[in-house]
C-alpha cells in the first residue's frame, strides 16, 4: 500500500518540449502558436503528463482542485521536469484521503517556470495516511507539539514570564497555542482572545522548514517566506521561542510513522 508522508518528494524524468508538442496542443485547443512559445495552459498539460505516479505503482487518484502560477513562458527546446512535494493530508466526507501537493515545472538548470498546488483524492483502501501528528497545522500535530514543548527546558525558561497565544498558520489551516508561564495550556483552532500574533506561510514553506536539513526559520523569515499578523513587538520578543518551537516541530516530522 502506498504510504504518504509530509515532505515526500517525487521528481519526474526530464522532458524536452518540441515543436510537435506545441502543434498538437494548439490543434487540440484551437489555438495559434508562434515563435516557439507555448500558450500558458500548455504547462498544466505537461505537468499532468509528467505526473505519472500511477504508472510507478502509486494509487489511482482524481484531482479535486488546483491552482497554477506562470513564472515565464515555456519555449520549444526547454527541458523540464516535474517536482512534486506532499504538503498536507486530510479526509473527505466520503472517507477518501485528500492529499495536498505542491507541483513545480523546473528546467534542467533549476529555474522554476510554472508551479502550483492541488488536492487529490485517493481511496482510503489504496493509501496509508500519514501519522496525524506529522500533518502540519492539524489538531493532532499541535497537541503533539505542545507535549514536546512542555518537555523542552529552553521553551519553559524562555516563556516563563510570558502570557499569550501563538498562532501557526499553514496554508488555510491555523492552530493556536495558548501559553502561560512556560506551559502550553491549550491548543485549539481558536482561543477566546485570539492569537497574540500569528506566523503564516504556505504549506510548501512549512513543509520545507520542517523536513529540510536544518532549522531555517530565520533564513526563510528574512526572505519574506513567512508573514506575521498581530502584535509585531511580541513576535520579535519571542524570537528564541519560535526557533525552539521549530526545532520541536521538526522532531515531529522526523518521528512520523505511517500506518
Amino acid at each position: 500500500m502506498e504510504r504518504f508522508r509530509i515532505g515526500q518528494r517525487f521528481t519526474s524524468a526530464s522532458r524536452s518540449v518540441t515543436r510537435e508538442d506545441l502543434a498538437t496542443f494548439a490543434r487540440w485547443e484551437g489555438l495559434r502558436v508562434s515563435d516557439g512559445v507555448a500558450p500558458a495552459a500548455f504547462g498544466v498539460i505537461l505537468a499532468a503528463e509528467l505526473d505519472r505516479s500511477e504508472d510507478q505503482g502509486g494509487p489511482p487518484y482524481r484531482v479535486l482542485e488546483s491552482s497554477w502560477s506562470y513564472h515565464r513562458p515555456i519555449r520549444v527546446g526547454d527541458a523540464l521536469r516535474l517536482e512534486v512535494t506532499i504538503t498536507g493530508c486530510d479526509s473527505a466526507d466520503n472517507g477518501e484521503r485528500v492529499i495536498h501537493r505542491h507541483l513545480a515545472l523546473v528546467t534542467d538548470g533549476g529555474e522554476q517556470v510554472q508551479a502550483g498546488t492541488d488536492r487529490i483524492a485517493v481511496s482510503a483502501g489504496h493509501s496509508g495516511a500519514p501519522d496525524p501528528r506529522s500533518v502540519i497545522g492539524s489538531l493532532d500535530w499541535a497537541a503533539a507539539l505542545a507535549e514536546l514543548l512542555s518537555r523542552d527546558a529552553r521553551f519553559r525558561s524562555a516563556t516563563d514570564q510570558w502570557d499569550g497565544t501563538i498562532g501557526l498558520r499553514c496554508g488555510d489551516r491555523e492552530m493556536q497555542l495558548r501559553i502561560y508561564r512556560g506551559r502550553v495550556i491549550e491548543t485549539a483552532r481558536r482561543t477566546p482572545l485570539g492569537a497574540t500574533f500569528t506566523v503564516a506561510a504556505s504549506e510548501l514553506t512549512w513543509t520545507e522548514l520542517l523536513t529540510g536539513p536544518r532549522n531555517d526559520f530565520m533564513r526563510l523569515a528574512m526572505r519574506g517566506r513567512f508573514s506575521v499578523i498581530g502584535n509585531g513587538y511580541e513576535y520579535l520578543r519571542l524570537a528564541k521561542v519560535l526557533s525552539v518551537l521549530v526545532d520541536n516541530a521538526r522532531l515531529l516530522t522526523e518521528e512520523g510513522e505511517y500506518r
Binding site: D216, M218, R219, M222, Y233, L236, L238, A239, K240
Partner: peptide
C-alpha cells in the same frame, strides 16, 4: 523599549547569514 529580545535576534540573525 521598541527593541525586544535584541540579543537573541542578533544571535539568530547572524546564524542565518
Amino acid at each position: 523599549v521598541s527593541a525586544p529580545s535584541r540579543s537573541e535576534r542578533t544571535y539568530l540573525g547572524t546564524l542565518a547569514v
